[in-house]
Simulated scan of single mutants.
Amino acid sequence: MPSAIHKAKALIVGTGAIGCLYGWRLSKSASVSTVCRSNFEAVKRNGFNIQSQKWGDGVFKPHQVLKNTKEAIQDKYDYVVITTKALPDIYDVAELIRPAISSESTAIVLIQNGLDIETPIAKAFPCNPLISSVAYIAASQESAGNIVMSQDENLVLSQYLPTSIGDDKLNNFMDLLSAGNVTAKHVPDIQRIRWEKLIWNASFSSVCVATGMTTTQVLAHPPSAKLVENIMRDVIKAANSYGCNFDADAEVSNMIARTMAIANNYKPSMMLDSERKNPMEVEVILGNPVRRAETNNVSVPYLQSIYTVCSAINDRNLGRK
């Protein structure tokens, strides 16, 4: 393995379950520090205790455990990996990470849900390589510093606005992931992957929030199951207006069948956030696709309606007027 990989330094910003797991795998061949908030004391004291069906059980002790990115200002990182919730209505991720971006050679890696999450980062740091990725992983932080991961995982990555230095950064990052036995795939266009994940996320997550039902209960209730299908078709219409060319019937059929097979009585993360009165990723999962559809004059009435409902629930939960 090239010596440069061993010398790589990464900072994970937003180290919950996803950040912990990918930080743990990167630490097999890189120096990994973490920014922790609610779990800071537990992680500082004991590290992360991890149970993983894929990678086994282990303890991840970061090189440094930081309370915020301001504490990272004296260090120089090859990669700043953002695994926070994508909440543009709550905080500005670009300003959040700014103290940790010490040079234009620092690559910024987004491992977040939603659509159009790259735009504010690219605007704030136009000269830094930007790697956008979509994670397919089932993991949760059961208590502070205790992480449980079920099933397999895979990570799909692409450069946003490709550059030559970005190619090198992406290739090196893929090597780091490979050394940690992460299933990683490079694709030329991450936006199609983001739209594809949204077909499921925008429909099931929102309907589960609105009804208070799990995926299995939603599918067992014909009106709710039909609403899921209609929202999926709206997302597909919007995506296809941007050249995605999804087969609507096939996508809807496959996603519902897969949900019935592997997501029995599942509560999407948006539903868990709603139950806990935490901010939901309403804007990036529902609002941005609605706005993208409007830009192309595509009618998405079901998506628009469920966005309104979930936005209202979010505002109520957060005590907004």
Rank of each mutant, 00 (worst) to 15 (best):
H6N: 15
V13E: 02
G19Y: 09
Y22W: 08
L26F: 13
L26D: 05
L26Q: 11
S27F: 04
N46Q: 07
G47A: 01
F48T: 00
K54T: 14
K67C: 04
N68Y: 02
T69Y: 02
A72E: 00
I73L: 11
Y77E: 04
T83I: 09
K85T: 03
Y91Q: 07
I97L: 04
P99A: 01
S103D: 09
E104T: 14
N113T: 12
D116F: 09
D116I: 12
A124C: 08
C127R: 15
S132L: 07
A138M: 13
A139D: 00
E142V: 14
A144Q: 08
G145Y: 00
E153L: 14
Q159Y: 07
S164F: 11
G166D: 14
K169C: 01
N171A: 00
L177N: 05
H186R: 14
D189H: 13
Q191A: 11
R192N: 11
R194L: 09
E196C: 10
L198R: 03
A202K: 03
S206R: 04
V207T: 03
G212V: 06
T216V: 08
Q217F: 12
I231N: 06
R233D: 07
V235L: 05
I236E: 09
A238V: 07
A239G: 12
N240Y: 10
T259M: 12
A261M: 13
S269G: 02
E275C: 08
E275T: 09
R276N: 15
K277F: 06
N278Q: 08
E283R: 07
G287L: 01
P289I: 11
V290I: 05
R291Y: 10
R291E: 10
N296G: 08
V309I: 14
S311L: 09
